[in-house]
Amino acid sequence: MTALLEAGGLAKVFPGRPDPVEILRDISFAVAPEEFVSIVGPSGCGKTTLLMCLAGLLPPSSGWVRFRGQPVTDPPRGVSVVFQDYSRSLLPWKSARENVTLGMRRLGLGRAAARDRAEALLAEVGLAGFEGHFPWQLSGGMQQRVAIARALAAESALLLLDEPLAAVDAQTRADLQDLLRGLARKFRQACLLVTHDVDEAVYMADRVLVLSRRPTRILREVPLALGAERDQIDTRERPDYLAARHEILTLIRAARPEGAGA
């Protein structure tokens, strides 16, 4: 099986004020087509930075990223991002429909076709009837769904999701988790989901990457075999779900500054 996305020896150092700040140190991994990979790590460890490097929005200090075998320097066709700061990632002067259409620019659809597809996608994320609303007329959870619909609109083979569900309430969050997984499967998309919620990481993924504190490396890859169909109640009671959760939480606790022996 050939990888869709590959990163090798990825490092990122920001030119800090007194001294340079080393954020990422030697990150290597791959994502297969249609695979769902979660990334967990302490806040501030550089998850957003990593995602920006993968998307071609930020040049790494060293190492490489390849998408479909091609080196990534600019945002490649076939990759979409849902940004962490979703409320700021929507254009406030455009309606929900127009914001979604923005995601389809690279598909070269006609105006009418783009409009129809945008409305279908908004309906898909449960926003039928809100097509003409502006972002600031929508609640946080609804804005997030517009951002997700925009990312889906590009028909990308790979979705990069930066803590897309951090700011919504528990019930909406569970609904959006299932929605995201369902749509990714429906459109046969690979997903890379950044989250700091270990339960979410395990519930959603085929594989979890656990990151260390800064300078950040991959502490461990935890493979999962929870099956294609997930259920908010049953899946979360499976012994292998609980074992993976236990393993990751232990790992993160050990990496905390107080507990860190190394």
């Binding site: 929005l57 945002p75 991002v81 940004f83 990632s89 923005l102």
Partner: peptide, 14 residues
């Protein structure tokens, strides 16, 4: 310009 919006534009291929 808010940098997130610039990233959105780059992802749209602008």
């Amino acid at each position: 310009t808010n940098p997130v919006l610039l990233s959105v534009g780059r992802m749209a291929g602008f």
